[in-house]
Simulated scan of single mutants.
Amino acid sequence: MSGRGIEVKTAAQIARMRQAGLVVAEALRTMGEAVRPGVTTGDLDVAAREVLASHGATSSFLNYGAQWGYPPYPATVCISVNEQVVHGIPSDRELAAGDVVSVDFGAILAGWHGDAARTFAVGDADAATADLVEVTRRAMWAGIAAARVGRRVGDVSHAIEEYTRAAERSFGIVREYTGHGIGTAMHQAPDVPNYGRARRGARLVAGMCLAIEPILTLGTADVATLDDEWTVVTLDSSRAAHWENTVAILPDGPWVLTEPDGGRAELAALGVRLSSVAD
């Protein structure tokens, strides 16, 4: 552990997290390939369960919250559609053409967590929805590119906000839900907001692992939680998107543990060198 209760991992521990991250990547790919009109959000949960079982992994999400007195989360994946921001509960709801669906998934393997999210359009998306999904995705990569040894959490937060504010269209940046540290637990210190000032917050050191996850809306950033005590929606009913990856901070660069290529292609396009550990 480092200061502020932040868990710092060894190279061997990060390698174990990579295995959990690859399970997450496979599940997200499987669910993304299944997204089409007529598929239910419950069908996607079944697909995620099958991937977990095939690897001997367990869900980071199933029964989450019980330890703090919340209703235990009842599924293996959070699936949020249209105005649902995060923590949507899978059900018999059928996806329809034009919907946008955010899929947030975590896996535990040998005691280590991986956590990532993707947002998919169901069929053809309108221009505003397509922009929302793409800007959220690129904002995540801007944050990841800023996650390097010697910088601070605020540099990651600022990079996400700066990219979002520079977009041609205006987006709401949800503040109530943030990125976070991750390792032997899914949620650890430090929090990683999606807005903020550079050069503030905990210093990034080799061995830290962060889940970096911008959440944007087409309207305001105001949200509310439904009566199920999990599903979060936009107050103005505008659509939301959510992208997330688990990132290891290493001496010579980041390693994106929940991307099959470790983040090589996206980081190279931003002029950032992937850690040699990923080779």
Rank of each mutant, 00 (worst) to 15 (best):
P72T: 10
A185M: 14
D92W: 06
A198E: 09
L28E: 08
A12C: 01
V35G: 02
F105W: 10
A47I: 07
V135D: 05
S54Y: 08
E162F: 12
V51L: 05
V86T: 14
P190D: 00
S80A: 12
I173H: 09
L267F: 09
L270K: 10
L132W: 12
D191T: 07
I215C: 04
A20N: 01
T184K: 15
V23L: 10
A221V: 05
L28P: 00
P251V: 07
G123V: 07
D236P: 01
L210N: 00
W230K: 05
A167K: 06
F61W: 15
G38Q: 11
A139G: 04
A53F: 10
G3S: 13
A27W: 04
T41R: 03
H113K: 03
C209E: 13
V223E: 02
P37R: 12
P71W: 14
M17N: 03
V174L: 07
S237K: 14
A268W: 13
A206R: 04
D126T: 10
A278G: 01
T234N: 10
D279E: 15
A116G: 07
V205C: 01
G21M: 05
C209F: 02
V256P: 01
Q19L: 13
H180G: 00
E134Q: 15
L226H: 11
R16N: 10
V100K: 03
I79N: 07
I144P: 00
I212T: 05
Q84E: 15
R148Y: 05
L62N: 02
T234H: 02
R197A: 15
A15F: 03
R18E: 05
T30Q: 06
V135Q: 04
M1K: 10
A66G: 07
F105V: 10
G263P: 02
R137H: 14
A116R: 06
S170M: 06
A167G: 02
G88A: 09
R148F: 02
L218F: 07
R199E: 15
A240E: 07
V272H: 04
S237L: 12
Q67H: 15
G56V: 02
G143E: 05
G262R: 02
F105C: 04
R29V: 11
R152N: 11
S275A: 13
A116Q: 08
E7Q: 15
P214Q: 07
T41D: 06
L28H: 06
V100L: 12
S170I: 11
R49I: 00
I160W: 05
E244L: 13
P90A: 09
L235W: 04
Y73D: 04
R203H: 06
M1R: 14
A27T: 03
T258S: 11
V101W: 08
A202R: 02
M140L: 15
Q13P: 00
H87I: 09
S80Q: 11
V233P: 00
L95S: 05
A130Q: 14
V192G: 00
W230A: 02
E33S: 12
